[in-house]
Amino acid sequence: MAIDVSRPESSNRPPAEDVARRLLDSSAQLSYDPLIEVDWETPLDPDFHGASPEWSTLYGTAYWKELTEAQRKALTRQEAASVASTGIWFEMILQQMVLRDIYTKDPLSDSFQWALTEVADECRHSIMFARGAKKLGAPAYRPRRAAVELGRFFKTVAFGEAAYAAILVAEEVLDVMQRDWMRDERVVPFVRTINNIHVVEESRHMKFAREETRKHLAGAGRVRRHIHSVLIAVAAYVIVSSMVNRKVYANAGLDEERGIREAKANEHHKSMMRSSCAGLMEFLTSVGLLTKPALFFYKRANLI
């Protein structure tokens, strides 16, 4: 009697394909439609914060102590809207990089189909963030012109691990703060729902970005690894420094120049940013992307 010793088809699949299949299955089981899930109809209640106050750029400063509760809440609403606007900007960059990466790949593969699923998620997230920022009573915050042009350059030249690790950086920084916001009953309910949706769906994106980063680095030489480590670090600095627009202070009724000055010197906020990136820095170290030149930019962005 002949014995079939052939291995299951799945055993010959690349690890990235198995990851993509699991992510597709997860997406089919747990995804959201923000147009339905988020309460867009109830008017904004000014008695709520827009984000956990501990994440405010002014929390712990002398200026924060002088503010009334109403002013603090107005500020966190503007800051949350600014973070959302920055998220839209980077998600548009992300979508272009992902689409360019899969342009000539096998459309029947799980990786290709997951990448399109991720792009669809990001489209919904961007609309959700835009509607959320509008409901918070904020203007359309945009990154400074230099950041916009650097983003245009990055999305054009970044490929492989540079693209996916930069995606991971942006998503990891948002993930930790949004996990705090979604659990905080001081935060306006519709923002908590937005954060919950984003955290759940971005967890799949981060897993894929890690896998793609490892996959691309497997064939990267020393020079390429060092160049990309700096490119990723510069992207991280630009993203993080663009998260809170300088106009949030004036739009919350505060002194803009004093707000900017005290935010830059705020050690509490710097500590919050560093703690949010501890896992990210461990990953970058494990794959050889935390080089000495890259460290300069991460330190400047207060991520390490």
Score class of each variant (00 low, 15 high):
residue 55 W to H: 09
residue 181 W to G: 13
residue 140 A to F: 03
residue 73 K to R: 15
residue 279 G to Y: 01
residue 289 L to G: 05
residue 215 K to P: 00
residue 273 M to R: 07
residue 198 H to W: 12
residue 286 S to V: 05
residue 187 V to L: 14
residue 123 C to V: 11
residue 245 N to Q: 10
residue 225 R to W: 01
residue 137 G to R: 02
residue 257 E to R: 04
residue 303 L to C: 05
residue 211 E to M: 04
residue 52 S to V: 03
residue 250 A to W: 09
residue 128 M to N: 08
residue 87 G to V: 06
residue 287 V to F: 09
residue 62 A to F: 02
residue 169 V to P: 11
residue 140 A to H: 08
residue 274 R to Q: 15
residue 276 S to W: 08
residue 160 G to I: 01
residue 170 A to F: 07
residue 260 I to Y: 03
residue 278 A to M: 01
residue 286 S to P: 12
residue 289 L to H: 12
residue 157 V to A: 02
residue 80 A to I: 11
residue 144 R to E: 07
residue 9 E to W: 13
residue 291 T to D: 09
residue 77 R to S: 15
residue 53 P to Q: 08
residue 257 E to K: 03
residue 141 Y to H: 01
residue 236 A to D: 12
residue 107 P to G: 07
residue 105 K to A: 05
residue 154 F to A: 10
residue 268 H to I: 10
residue 154 F to M: 10
residue 72 R to V: 02
residue 8 P to Y: 10
residue 168 L to M: 02
residue 141 Y to A: 00
residue 187 V to S: 15
residue 227 I to V: 12
residue 87 G to D: 02
residue 147 A to M: 10
residue 156 T to W: 13
residue 227 I to G: 00
residue 183 R to F: 13
residue 224 R to L: 13
residue 142 R to C: 02
residue 7 R to F: 14
residue 76 T to A: 12
residue 139 P to T: 14
residue 159 F to Q: 07
residue 71 Q to C: 01
residue 130 A to G: 14
residue 244 V to A: 15
residue 108 L to S: 10
residue 38 V to T: 09
residue 60 G to S: 10
residue 192 R to G: 06
residue 231 L to W: 09
residue 24 L to H: 06
residue 229 S to I: 08
residue 288 G to A: 10
residue 181 W to T: 12
residue 200 V to M: 13
residue 90 F to V: 14
residue 115 A to M: 03
residue 200 V to Q: 11
residue 202 E to D: 14
residue 264 K to Q: 09
residue 237 Y to S: 05
